[in-house]
Design a protein around this nucleic acid. Structure first.
Length: 360
RNA sequence: GCACAGGUGGCCGAGCGGUUAAUGGCAGCAGACUGUAAAUCUGCCGCUCUUUGGAGCUACGGAGGUUCGAAUCCUCCCCUGUGCA
């Protein structure tokens, strides 16, 4: 799922996202609440209509901001006292508030309001954080179930009701994760997310936690790992049984000049592409690769032309969406392990990251 | 010709006796980025060595001088801008 925090996948217009065949986007409760305000979005007919996105929208609850804006917030049992990163004004967010906002936005998949546990967190801290998240999940669910019917509902399929997913926390402790998952499943959500990953922990640990948690979540419901990952990681997690993922990486990296290709990472800023007439990725069929050269894209980036962000983002999203399409067809063909092996080989750095130092 | 104001590393521009190989910014080079406070952030950025701690050399228009010590003070010269002839 491409991430469109503030009602926009940065640098990529909705009609091009449709062309990439993106089926669902992320929006963000906290950001849209602050600006333009969820009541305004409601008056505009909901987020789908407001941003002219006819397909599905998943909204993050603001739980991640509890983590990332840690200097600007205070967490209590009741909820979170926030200071706006925009103007410093004070706001209070509770599970009920988060549901109100997500309902006003008309989200297809709302997320329970959670506390994204920081890393590192010791066992005591992870336990307390997970318990809080579970209590908040119960509050989120009851408020959502009571209020999700009278929404300015703009979902794709008429007659459908919006969904609320629960989120598993538990830090880097497999047994805590399992405990959290079991208790969450008892609440009976239509889908489940594993949160609190990719917060700075080593990669092996990420996989370990996913592996430990996944078997406890019902396989016949969507299982969503939040905030991952690199191209090889998303294939790896899909192979483990993960159904949904979102990540800012393809778009943020694109804006910063990092391109993902079938040959691995490529930093388009680099001098070595100054006169390279080839496409970003020789095996990619996206419009950017069909039409523009590395040399031109490098120039656009160097000249700080906004088009650089647009084209780079388009390619990276195309690459990610392609990768997931390949996952789906491999799954059907029973060749997912082959795909995983090839993607892993592709995404390995061609040279050691700090090769200069290692050589010296 | 006279009077002011200036000439600093690829560019702009601080510094106005020692702590200065010389603040900043730009440009350049390399790297990071994982439920977006991110079109952001980090490092390098005179030359040559180096066991990576450092060592040596060359540098603030030019040439002299003062001083233990000069990008900084003095003299002359060259050049640039503005004003007056």
């Amino acid at each position: 799922m491409p991430v469109g925090t503030a009602g926009s996948v940065k640098a990529v217009p909705q009609h091009l996202l449709e062309e990439l065949d993106a089926r669902i986007l992320l929006g963000n409760t906290y950001h849209l609440y602050l600006r333009p305000g969820h009541e305004l979005v409601r008056r505009m007919g909901g987020l789908h209509r407001f941003m002219s996105w006819p397909r599905a929208i998943l909204t993050d609850s603001g739980g991640f901001q509890v983590f990332s804006l840690n200097a600007l917030r205070k967490v209590t049992e009741q909820g979170v006292q926030f200071r706006s990163h925009l103007d410093g004004s004070s706001h209070f967010f509770s599970p009920e508030h988060s549901m109100e906002v997500q309902i006003a936005l008309g989200s297809d998949i709302a997320m329970a309001f959670d506390e994204c546990t920081e890393y590192p967190a010791d066992r005591t801290r992870a336990r307390a954080s997970l318990d809080l998240t579970l209590r908040w999940a119960a509050r989120s669910k009851s408020h959502f179930d009571e209020n999700c019917h009278d929404v300015p509902w703009a979902a794709t399929l008429p007659g459908q009701t919006p969904n609320l997913f629960g989120i598993v926390q538990g830090g880097m402790f497999p047994d805590l994760r399992r405990d959290a998952a079991e208790r969450l499943v008892e609440m009976d959500f239509p889908g489940y997310a594993i949160g609190g990953l990719s917060v700075g922990e080593p990669r092996d640990l990420t996989r370990e936690i996913i592996e430990a948690t996944l078997p406890l979540l019902p396989a016949d419901k969507p299982r969503y790992v939040m905030g991952v990952g690199y191209p090889d990681e998303i294939v790896e997690y899909a192979a483990l049984g993960v159904d949904m993922m979102d990540c800012v990486l393809p778009t943020r990296a694109a804006r910063h000049g990092l391109i993902f290709t079938s040959e691995g990472r490529l930093n388009i800023k680099s001098r070595r592409y100054a006169e390279d007439q080839g496409p970003l990725d020789p095996t990619c069929g996206c419009r950017v690769c069909q039409r523009y050269s590395r040399a031109y894209l490098r120039h656009l980036f160097a000249a700080q032309e906004p088009l650089a962000a647009v084209l780079n983002s388009l390619h990276n999203l195309a690459f990610y969406l392609d990768t997931m399409r390949r996952v789906r067809s491999s799954l059907k063909a029973g060749t997912l392990s082959d795909l995983l092996a090839s993607v892993r080989a592709q995404q390995e750095p061609q040279e050691p990251r700090d090769g200069a130092n290692a050589a010296g």
